Simulated scan of single mutants.
Amino acid sequence: MKKIETHNVKKILIPIRLQEYAVGIFKTIPTKSGIKKAIKKGFVKVNGKTATTALYINEGDTIHLYESEQKNEGKQFNFPLEILFEDIYLAVIYKPAGILVSGNSFATIDNALIQNLQKSALTDATRPRPVHRLDYPTSGLLLIGKTTESIIALNQLFEKKEIQKTYYAICIGKMEKNGEIDFSIDDKNAFTSFEVIQTIKSPRFDFLNLVKLYPKTGRKHQLRKHLFAIGNPILGDKEYFLEDKILKGKGLFLHASSLSFTHPFTKEKIIITKELPKKFKKLFPEF
């Protein structure tokens, strides 16, 4: 392995887990998920010893970050992406339904970014990285960081809840015109507000609703779990569904339609929207 970065731990009040402390200390890996993966792969050493995610950091410790010396020059994933916004710091792209954002698979948005985005001219330019996730069956807008500083800044905006996301879903059954869902997920607070835009009768599902969703937190499968919890699962959901109310072959009717935030560097107000997919418009042609 090749050593690429070193960090000396200065004054800290109480011991803290490595995977928490190391977020943001390395330019090469600025995200929490990236640090966790590096630790698990044995690329992080503390005081010369390979670290674990359970290790606590103390004042005076020395943390080294390594990378594999084996070059990974496998086939590149050539997958054209629709780019809705791009500058030297960040980009917003459209993720189609039915593709992973990242992971161990070859066919991911993460692997396609370098083919679609222009390399930043800034000195801390890095490989473009998604700074949040969308489920495999969900379509919509995805925010990408193109520099180390940008990735850190965008993650901080998400942590401070300063990035507003809006989704549309088609939900099954009779619904209130609007409401709020405050239902914990994995023992963590989770909050979603919703607004029913239009309702139509359905011979098979009784009612179908075009619903606008405003998640205030970002738990895994939050919108899908929340709507299922109030008895109005999303059409096409194969994990959270009512008996005899499963639609097969059309995918999940959940779409991340807009992103709104203040650009962390230019301070410009960024509002990006993406129209509803065709399968939504077949049921709700007015939209």
Rank of each mutant, 00 (worst) to 15 (best):
I99Q: 03
N104M: 01
A91P: 09
A112F: 00
I151K: 01
L122F: 14
P96S: 14
I114D: 07
L122V: 02
I99Y: 02
L142A: 11
R133V: 06
I93E: 01
I151M: 05
Q118D: 12
F106H: 13
A121C: 01
L154N: 10
S102F: 09
L122K: 15
L117W: 09
Y94I: 11
I144F: 04
L134T: 05
S150I: 04
L122S: 02
L100H: 13
G98L: 09
D135I: 11
L90M: 15
I152W: 10
A107K: 15
A91M: 01
I109T: 03
V92S: 01
E149R: 13
G145E: 05
G98D: 02
K146R: 12
L141E: 02
N104R: 12
Q115E: 15
L154E: 04
S139L: 08
L113N: 04
P128N: 01
G140E: 05
L141N: 04
L134S: 08
Q115F: 03
N104K: 14
D110L: 08
T138A: 11
L142Q: 03
I114V: 14
A125F: 14
L117R: 07
V131A: 01
S139P: 10
R127S: 10
L117P: 12
L122P: 04
P137C: 10
I99P: 08
V131L: 00
A91T: 05
Y94F: 13
E149P: 03
I109D: 02
S150L: 01
K95W: 05
N116W: 06
I99F: 05
P96R: 13
L141C: 10
P96H: 11
P137N: 14
I144M: 05
A121I: 06
I88S: 15
L134R: 04
S120E: 07
Y94A: 12
P137M: 03
G103D: 08
V101A: 09
I93H: 07
L122C: 00
P137Q: 12
N111A: 14
F106G: 00
D124Q: 05
L143C: 11
L134A: 09
F106Y: 15
L90D: 05
Y89N: 15
L143F: 09
A125R: 14
I152A: 14
P137V: 06
T123S: 15
S120W: 02
H132W: 05
P130D: 03
L154D: 03
A91Y: 01
G145S: 13
S120K: 07
G103Y: 05
